[in-house]
């Protein structure tokens, strides 16, 4: 039986930037046992030597030429912005540091 604790779910929610309520955390943790059991079936087969498939079609080397095409206008770019100022997206103070 696989399982995840409430704290495990809380950690994952933090990684996924979702601020879950206590109820949600507990609820999800309780559901995860059966979900993980279902998906853990992928481990039943001996997969040694089997290649992983990341792309369903065997395409390679799909490139575009280095050519500039018109961008969106700043109005279009900012059209969905929840807040803006001086032609920039306005966001609340950022706590973390950039990578």
């Amino acid at each position: 039986m696989s399982s995840l604790s409430r704290d495990d779910v809380a950690k994952l929610a933090n990684l996924a930037r979702i601020e879950m309520t206590e109820d949600e955390l507990v609820n999800l943790a309780s559901q995860f046992g059966s979900i993980l059991d279902a998906v853990a079936r992928v481990q039943e087969l001996n997969l040694d030597g089997v290649k992983a498939t990341s792309h369903p079609q065997p395409l390679e080397n799909i490139f575009r030429q280095d050519v500039v095409l018109p961008s969106l206008s700043p109005d279009q770019a900012l059209s969905g912005a929840p807040a803006q100022e001086d032609q920039r997206f306005r966001v609340p103070q950022i706590l973390g540091e950039a990578e």
């Binding site: 490139f63 575009r64 030429q65 280095d66 961008s71 969106l72 700043p74 032609q87 920039r88």
Partner: peptide, 26 residues
């Protein structure tokens, strides 16, 4: 350039947009 004048659905990560690799960069 002036702010946000060199953006498009792809580099703004608008829903549905997809990347395509620049051959010159390769």
């Amino acid at each position: 350039g002036e702010p946000n004048t060199q953006t498009c659905p792809v580099c703004l990560a608008l829903p549905g947009a997809l990347p395509v690799v620049n051959a010159k960069a390769i």
